[in-house]
């Protein structure tokens, strides 16, 4: 068995008194595509956001390539995370947000070049070349000089995907990438994600698009009340769930199916 890229041990997260993640153990191997599903408030977004430290874990360890991130600090199991270490982690673990989070004062091309210039220290010409390549890949080669505010939601999200891809992350996190899109724009974004799956990229996707999760994922996780309730192949979890809780969740989604 190969060493996982990412290993999470006993991950805990509190928001004040609210216990959101209750000791999660989890690992990601190269090439895995993991879909995380669950009701709102189940902690699935928080879990994903802990993996690139958009949220700071309250306890437990996250290790990249077997090397735990941060240093132990204090007695309660909390860790201290130096900025330089977090920046390195975030370079290797990219993220696509529900709200795109593009930089409105920069053109599409500048958005994608930004990380290459400031974080990777690439030269302008090389950064430009890579950014153009990634934008062409997501079908936006003709929008290089547009500002994000002039694009549709689906186009903005594709720029955000190109921006994350340009950094050449080893793992890509998608936090409900289609949840703020109009229904007719969901398809164009999912097609891009599907294309990345065909390239064998390692990805984690938090989503409500169960149909897409079924076709996309190599593994599906049902998260409820801050713990992994059920983990398995898409067929196991989405077609033949063993847990009553999972069944109830899926039924709510298929209630109006046809």
């Amino acid at each position: 068995m190969t060493e996982p890229i990412l290993r999470v041990t006993d991950l805990q997260k509190y928001f004040g008194d609210l216990h959101v993640l209750k000791g999660i153990d989890f690992s990601v191997e190269a090439g895995e595509r993991i879909a995380i599903i669950g009701g709102s408030g189940s902690g699935k977004s928080t879990f994903l956001r802990c993996l690139n430290f958009m949220e700071m874990p309250s306890g437990g360890t996250i290790a990249l390539d077997g090397k735990p991130i941060g240093k132990p600090h204090g007695r309660d199991g909390a860790r201290r995370y130096p900025e330089s270490e977090l920046c390195t982690v975030r370079e290797r673990v990219g993220m696509v947000f529900q709200q795109f989070n593009l930089f409105p004062h920069m053109t599409v091309l500048e958005n994608v070049m930004e990380g290459l210039l400031t974080v990777k220290g690439m030269r302008n010409a090389a950064a430009r070349e890579r950014a153009v390549r990634e934008l062409e890949k997501v079908g936006l080669g003709t929008k290089l000089d547009a500002y994000p505010g002039k694009l549709s939601g689906g186009q903005q999200q594709r720029v955000a995907i190109a921006r994350a891809l340009a950094m050449e992350p080893e793992i890509l996190l998608f936090d409900e990438p289609t949840s703020s899109l109009d229904p007719e724009l969901v398809g164009e974004v999912l097609r891009v994600i599907r294309q990345l799956a065909d390239e064998g990229r390692t990805m984690l996707l938090v989503t409500h698009e169960l149909g897409f999760a079924y076709h996309f994922a190599t593994k599906v996780i049902f998260l409820a009340d801050g713990v992994f309730h059920e983990v398995g192949t898409p067929d196991d979890v989405l077609k033949n769930p063993r847990q009553e809780r999972t069944r109830a969740f899926l039924e709510r989604f298929t209630e109006f199916g046809f």
Binding site: N52, M54, E83, S84, C87, T88, R90, E91, G94, M95, F97, Q99, F100, N101, L102, F103, E114, G115, T118, V119, A160, R163, A164, M167
Partner: peptide
């Protein structure tokens, strides 16, 4: 989201402030 978008790329605090 602007802070997060910049952080997620691996930018340091000083870089994301300035850029």
């Amino acid at each position: 989201g602007q802070w997060e978008g910049a952080r997620a790329l691996g930018m340091r605090h000083s870089q994301l402030m300035r850029r």
